[in-house]
Design a protein around this nucleic acid. Structure first.
Lengths: 332, 332
DNA sequence: GTGAAAGCGCTAACAG
DNA sequence: CTGTTAGCGCTTTCAC
């Protein structure tokens, strides 16, 4: 592992000159060439650890996600990555698994590795960002907000829940249930509130017997759906407030022959790998990838020194009503 | 950002003692307590960059994946993460996007960040691991092999392709096509060979007009399926050699009303987020998560100093024939 | 334009 | 058991 000193010796210059060449600072063309060929001969790769220690700043940004297995988040990750790469930053992803302690650990690493910035979908509303912020590291919250004054990119959660429920109302369903995520997760609550708003505005019932809290995963959706169907007065339609719960609910319904439109289904979030085609399902699309690129751009601007007051960007959802879905659009 | 020196001063000890306390080395209980409370007071977090520079070794391992949006790989990632966390290592994931240059960049980072080890599903068979290996960093290949003498964990690719095709043969299909990934990706070729073996053993035709190479993605599966259906003598069944291609193929078939079992479908890889239930599809399950934990354990052993000759573990697939699939099992 | 030298924060001999 | 000291490899004033 060649160091800058070995390159310097071989090139007959000082280490400082090697450093300058590696960083594109002004150096005489001859010496620059000398350095470059010496570096090539020694297969020299600058040691980022040393550089980071010296500069107090690395060129990698971290993305902390609560569930790496959820396509919603990986799609967002792609967005972040594209923007980061374009700006010369590398992206490392960490799975917090909705676990505040795992999350704290990764935040710690981000701090102590001097990472340039962090984009985080917080695992809880108690997420501790002080360390990062005190050290002047920019942070952008995605999907869920924090109690700090940092930039954020959110989905229009209430409208999304409302739109989902409204499309079911419009289709004539009478008892519209809602399956949502944990009560302490903002997106879960907000989308549920949207559901309630639409249902009540239509004169329907949005009482707690039609609302289920569960995990934001497939099994959570399954359990909640089964529970709803087993209730005294079962619903005739359901809003699932995230993609995976939607999948779980649909699985249960399909197993029981209650395929849409016999039973109304509206899902908040895309169903990227579904194989059902002209299905009678309403999808409220969430621009996850766009959320990623937006967040990355905001973070990069902060890294470049942008000192504007923090602001929150809310991304609008897009409704794809049941009738319009086709296999082709469900594909992407 | 407090340093070890400030903690030392506040505690009235030397920096070395602080370091010893932070690393669990033998220190008198009184001083240890002094240090601990000083550290707490200053909210001291050890600087990993400095530690890594000094130790020439960090406590994070890298996982390089060709497609972070593919559930097969994220499932593997979960496996790696579980094992890594259990051993006190943190995991950072990088998306190489099947792009050798992106991959090279992340490998470079792994080297120059002194990461403890790397698990990689190589983007190409020309992936350059020399730098890592020269520095003594352990590497484990997953899913695809490399031209280096490193540990590896593979799926039983030919058997998987063969089992998929065989199940279609057993169901009585006559013209069984195969949709597979890029020719330069090992898993794509191997599974296709497995398909050919089974089809030919059954006296069928496995000529190139029944074989399509495409990307290992949903759109790749769609394109290939459409192409096959448009051919002069269309097949009556198809083997998709990965999960996403399977989804794409199923979408096209569903759109055209050719739902299984009217058209035979066998997919290599799980369909985690599918909503079709008692579907007549054969799934050849690939233990992705298990692959992840196995690879992580092998890597960790190397990090601990294991110097055995490199070896390759091949994980056996599991066939779930069409008739047995139900919504319940498709769920997980 | 270029070199010498001082550190970034930590760990690991080496003494004591 | 504990302090002193010398770097890990790089960047960056500060002189020349």
């Amino acid at each position: 592992m060649a160091t800058i000193y070995e390159v310097a010796t071989l090139a007959g210059v000082s280490p400082a000159t090697v450093s300058r060449v590696m960083n594109g600072l002004r150096v005489s063309p001859e010496k620059a060439e000398l350095v470059r060929s010496a570096a090539a001969k020694l297969k020299f790769t600058p040691n980022r650890t040393a550089r980071t220690l010296r500069r107090q700043n690395s060129e990698v940004i971290a993305l902390l996600l609560p569930d790496i297995e959820n396509p919603y988040f990986t799609s967002m990750a792609r967005g972040v990555e594209d923007a980061a790469q374009a700006a010369g930053f590398s992206l490392v992803m960490c799975n917090t698994d909705e676990d505040p302690s795992k999350e704290a650990r990764y935040l710690d690493i981000a701090v102590s590795e001097n990472m340039a910035g962090v984009i985080i979908a917080p695992a809880s509303d108690h997420t501790e960002l002080t360390q990062l912020l005190e050290r002047g590291r920019p942070v952008v919250a995605v999907d869920r907000s924090t109690r700090y004054d940092v930039d954020a990119v959110m989905m229009s959660n209430r409208p999304a829940g409302r739109d989902a429920a409204q499309s079911l109302v419009d289709s004539g369903y009478r008892r519209i249930a809602c399956i949502t995520g944990p009560e302490d997760i903002e997106t879960a609550m907000e989308r549920a509130i949207g559901w309630r708003t639409a249902v009540e505005a239509a004169g329907g019932s949005a009482t707690s017997d039609l609302l289920r809290f569960s995990t934001f995963r497939v099994d959570g959706g399954r359990a909640a759906m089964e529970d709803l169907l087993a209730s005294a007065e079962p619903p005739d339609a359901v809003v699932a407030t995230n993609n995976l719960m939607g999948v779980g609910a649909l699985q249960v319904l399909t197993e029981r022959g209650l395929t849409p439109p016999r039973f109304g289904v509206a899902v908040v979030g895309d169903l990227p790998f579904t194989t059902l085609s002209p299905a009678a399902i309403t999808i409220v699309r969430l621009p996850a990838r766009h959320m990623g690129t937006t967040a990355a751009r905001m973070l990069l601007a902060r890294i470049e020194g942008d000192a504007e007051p923090a602001h929150t960007v809310v991304l609008r959802n897009e409704v794809v009503p049941a009738s319009l879905i086709s296999g082709a659009t469900a594909g992407r």
